[in-house]
Design a protein around this nucleic acid. Sequence first.
DNA 1: TCATGTGTTGTTTTT
DNA 2: GAAAAACAACACATG
Length: 546
Amino acid sequence: MDAATAATATAAAAALVWFRKGLRVHDNPALDAARRSAARVYPVFVLDPRYLRPDPAAPSPGSAHAGVARVRFLLESLLDLDARLRCLGSRLLVLRARDDVSDAVCAALKDWNIGKLCFESDTEPYALARDKRVTDFAAASGIEVFSPVSHTLFDPAEIIEKNGGRPPLTYQSFVATAGEPPKPVMEEYSVLPPIGDTGGYELLPVPKLEELGYGDLSQEYIPPFRGGETEALKRMRESLQDKEWVAKFEKPKGDPSAFVKPATTVLSPYLKFGCLSVRYFYHCIQDVYRSAKTHTKPPVSLAGQLLWRDFFYTVSLGTPNFDHMEGNPICKQIPWRESEELFVAWRDGRTGYPWIDAIMIQLRKWGWMHHLARHSVACFLTRGDLYIHWEQGRDVFERLLIDSDWAINNGNWLWLSCSSFFYQYHRIYSPISFGKKYDPNGDYIRHFIPVLKDMPKEYIYEPWTAPLSVQEKARCIVGKDYPKPVVDHEAASKGCRRRMGEAYASNRLGGSTVKGNSSNSSRRKLCHGGQDVPDSSKSKQPRKRS
DNA sequence: TCATGTGTTGTTTTT
DNA sequence: GAAAAACAACACATG
């Protein structure tokens, strides 16, 4: 045995599984590779202080990056992962990074003399940069790295390559390129290799919210969804049990006002953290389809939803500046309006439109709301009423949603703001009639906005139209107990349509039309700068995500 | 290059 | 009450 072979043999003795997303045991190729190739396996999760430290200045409980509902969901998921690893004779090693997560990982690799590092590949820009620091260190230290794709059905990079180096920009072309996804890795095993010596590391349990500095939180910030793989699998099985419901599922149909029993599976947060394997879920849905006489098809079917998820992952990987308007080649350049006052009213659920406000309050408290409810408020903020930049709305969703997912969130904001993918800007969700057709009595509004609970149903969607005597009887005076509408929807949406038309025309010309000096007809591919952007936003640096 | 087909998910009024 | 039509009109990826 030569020196190199000996080194490899030693190296293979210890493997570190770095959990980030993919907080599960089932269908976990990184964990599977580690257990097969090493005598000792260190399952690690690193707590990121920049992600978890409470921010008292934030507009709602939580850190600068995550609302408390998602922090809680993460901790629950870690606790469950630890429990499941313990069932296999192992445990989760929770490390606290002092500053940068990658530094903590590199230190552990070195201190524990790790020979093989296994982690699930992640395509988000933040993750790519973080992971590169670690893989560079591993390469320099002779540590083998195994980084499989298992967060998505397909390998986004592979799809881009298959499509000639560019991401497919329509769902249909994506589906045509993608084919069938790989099967999940579901081999049963009853024991994992033991963890090795951890040296001077203090082995901490998964922290409680209070230990992270989240003190007195009211009960209202506890969403009705518990994190973790165990809960994910239970929830999936419950959803799939109703085979007829699965076979007939059509996304555009479904009641956004249903909150006691949501109209969708609410598996998105479990997919976001990888508590549930998307490949396993897809596979189980196919099983149900095989047992059904007929079933719906993509894009509207349940399986079709998972393909949408992969679609956005693929486009986001292949598009520069995907999370910005400027410098994003697929994003229309639109001179959105600056208004802190209107933005804050929207963010805090004080627009005076109960349907909009109830949704934003559900977001703040639960970190989850129905897909069409998200559409309503996203349309309202951007092209529908307030004409405010989608990046501002994106930031709010990104922080508060428990299923907040970089690719999907940005993709949907591009979509809803008619900045990309979807362009029919004259189709505007009414903040009054859209909710009413699902929930004429306004039960959803009454639940999330208690001050309106006694408003008669005739006025619940438009309380400012209620006669004063009615407002008094309902103990809710508009302008005092509940805000007046921040804009008049009729006028605002009309103005938005007009401005969108102008912005589109300006994009077609490929230059500024308002300010003249439209020299050439550069294609949209090249567009950034030179657009009809007011000075206020033009002079600004690209919005920093906080 | 350009014609073509397609696009998850609007609202309001009429039948 | 459900379904269809009218409304006012489209953008653009794909091949």
